[in-house]
Amino acid sequence: MRKIILMMTMVMLISSTTIVAQNQLRPKENRIRSAVVMTSKDVGRSRIMVKDGIRISREKTYVVQQQLKRLQSNLDGLTPEQLMLIKKSIQEIRIYQEGSDAYLGRITDYNGRIRKAREDKDYETLIQVYNEILVLQKHRIERLDRYNSLMDRLIKGLSNIGGSDGDFTS
């Protein structure tokens, strides 16, 4: 009986030691995996911000388009300030559009690299790729914010024509 107890105790000791040893052998891998998860989460958060920015941009653009339709039937009612605003906005939107083309198709290009890095368990590359995507996303968020501010200015500036002066964005 004593032998059995001794044997079981030994097995328990060996098992426990194995767990501890395994955890001590892989601290670097655990750390880097954690870093990948964190960076990926950052990318996920930025994705949501970009999508929200796009949704808001669409809504504001539709509002301005509605205002323009109303203005078409009341061209005499446009003040010099509003004309200036439209003129300036046209230039700003045109510059915005020129900048947009340079950044299109860039993020989808990373899909292949990520897939390969995951297959190879190349976590350093994964982190690097995610960080590059974060830079692009940050840039997009900034651009969308700028465009949305421009739309807000247009909505506000054109809202006193055609009897509409309420909040269009809600």
């Binding site: 990948v36 998860v37 960076t39 990926s40 990318v43 996920g44 994705r47 970009v50 999508k51 796009i54 941009s57 669409r58 653009t61 559009q97 947009s100 083309d101 950044y103 299109l104 198709g105 860039r106 993020i107 989808t108 990373y110 899909n111 990520i114 897939r115 995951r118 994964l126 995610y130 995507i133 997009r140």
Partner: peptide
């Protein structure tokens, strides 16, 4: 362009 920007995104299975 906004449509194109929306489409230019990572696929969901590439999130770690």
């Amino acid at each position: 362009t906004l449509d194109a920007v929306e489409e230019d995104d990572l696929s969901d299975d590439n999130m770690f």
